[in-house]
Write a protein that binds this DNA or RNA. Structure first.
Length: 434
RNA sequence: GUGAGAGUAGCUCAAGUGGUUAGAGCACCAGGUUGUGGUCCUGGGGGUUGCGGGUUCGAGUCCCGUCUCUCACCCCA
């Protein structure tokens, strides 16, 4: 029993300081990049009514999330995503919010799934959304924020790629190939499997899912399109030509943003969910076989579904789990982020000077400067060792000369250089010492 | 929710086809060192071998169940 209670619940993590430092680095970068791109932060309650999640995802969703009843019998659920909350919040104030609405959030989410690599039962997910614009510029801007973040943490275009598609163009190409719209949703689900299966397996699967030989042939013509320029070989109707123009426009915007190196047209990216209505994208790493780092797209009718006006919207989510795994694997996490951030560690050369050391520590803390000391009275050498372990940048040595001549010693723990200065002077300019 | 593999100290791993008191490195703590650490030496603490049951004279080792992790499905918001 003792052992069992020591374990965190299935699929959850304990956020020890080392992990917390890495997450803090990611969260801070998410937040900074969001703000730099003009997004503002929002959040909602960590639990919502179960009904809210049923609106978008149907009854079966209940088995995939943690839900419970309060004492009055209300059905509640821990949020598995934040988009319904966003939709609810926007719908409530839709008329008073300036457009476009550019919001971001870093919610802690929970899903009652079976954990596996890159997927846990509790995780964080950066969400970027632009509501109220139907322009591909809004889609381009979401991609830009995502890529700008990834670029900033060291995931360059030789490591990752931005796989883009448009559901509307696939639809119009299917219509051009004489496949009626009522079949499209089913075909999207089949297309979603393309990358996971071998060519033969895919053919088999498609037939098993009820595709005729002609349909399969048309679908594979689409799936094997090499790039955006090849798409024109299949466009017949005016509608599909217009949709292709949108993709070209998107690519132009990405070029203007300077992230065209990441862009790749990928006809198999359709996203599993029915509510996507236009451009969709996923971000993958090229080197390993992890699941998607981020995914999103346009969802023009979702706000209406939640009782708001019919507002166009686009956005994406990026989870911490896959991202952290990739960064860990590529050794992209800066070593200094796990440092404590402690600036000074005050040491007494002899225990008779301990109170003096405490006094100096107190003066530093009063000025808002981080400072600590050894809780045990031990030799100078051991205290220096503690200073090192605490991750302090400088050691301050308080000794006989401090008592006699008001002098303290500053030792840089990285360079080992040390100097003596007057105690008052040190306290006065402690925040300038680097 | 279905199927498969794995679990030995905080971490990485040892321990002939079942056989004394389950070991090592790293990490942690203390001392050597009464004014100089990160990088020396010595010592110490730490395990109901994930948990529960079974077979056996005897189980870390074999069998069953269970929990957790990993992988493949379902799903992927």
């Amino acid at each position: 029993m003792g052992k069992k209670i020591l374990q965190p619940p299935k699929g959850t993590r304990d956020y020890y300081p080392e992990l917390m430092a890495k997450l803090r680095w990611i969260f801070d970068t998410w937040r900074n990049v969001s703000i730099q791109h003009g997004f503002v932060e929002y959040d909602g309650p960590i639990f919502e009514s179960l009904e809210l999640f049923r609106i978008k995802s149907g009854d079966e969703i209940a088995s995939q999330l943690f839900h419970f009843e309060d004492r009055a019998g209300r059905e509640l659920a821990i949020r598995p995503e934040i988009t319904p909350t966003l939709a609810r919040m926007v719908a409530q104030k839709a008329n008073s919010l300036p457009r476009p609405i550019k919001w971001f959030s870093i919610p802690r989410l929970s899903r009652a799934e079976r954990p596996q690599r890159g997927r846990l039962r509790e995780f964080f997910q950066w969400n970027i959304d632009i509501v109220g614009s139907d322009s591909v510029l809004a889609d381009a801007e979401c991609m830009f924020v995502a890529i700008d973040f990834l670029r900033r943490i060291g995931l360059t275009s030789d490591i990752i790629e931005l796989q883009v598609n448009s559901r509307t163009i696939i639809s119009s190409l299917l219509v051009d190939a004489n496949i009626t719209p009522d079949r499209h949703e089913h075909i999207f689900a089949i297309m979603d499997k393309y990358e996971k299966l071998s060519d033969r397996q895919f053919d088999e699967y498609a037939k098993q899912q009820g595709l005729s030989a002609d349909e399969l042939s048309a679908v594979k013509d689409i799936l094997t399109l090499k790039d955006i320029d090849a798409v024109s070989s299949l466009t017949k109707s005016q509608e599909s030509k217009e949709e292709l123009d949108k993709l070209h426009q998107l690519r132009d915007y990405l070029h203007a943003f300077g992230i065209e190196d990441y862009f790749v047209y990928k006809p198999s990216v359709v996203r599993g969910l029915a509510y996507y209505t236009g451009i969709v994208f996923e971000i993958f790493d090229k080197s390993t076989k992890l699941r998607a780092i981020a995914g999103g797209g346009r969802y023009d009718h979702l706000i209406k579904l939640f009782g708001g006006p019919d507002m166009p919207a686009t956005g994406f989510g990026m989870g911490d789990v896959v991202l952290l795994e990739l960064l860990e694997e590529l050794d992209k996490i800066p070593a200094d982020i796990t440092r404590s951030g402690l600036k000074f560690f005050v040491i007494d050369a002899d225990k008779q000077f301990f109170n003096l050391a405490l006094k100096i520590t107190s003066e530093l803390r009063k000025k808002g400067i981080s400072a600590d000391y050894s809780s045990k009275r031990q030799s100078l050498g051991k205290q220096l060792k503690s200073a090192n372990q605490a991750g302090a940048k400088f050691a301050i040595i308080v000794g006989q000369e401090t008592a006699d001549e008001n002098l303290i010693t500053i030792k840089n723990l990285q360079t080992s250089q040390q100097q003596q200065i007057k105690t008052d002077e040190f306290i006065a300019k402690a925040d300038e010492i680097e």
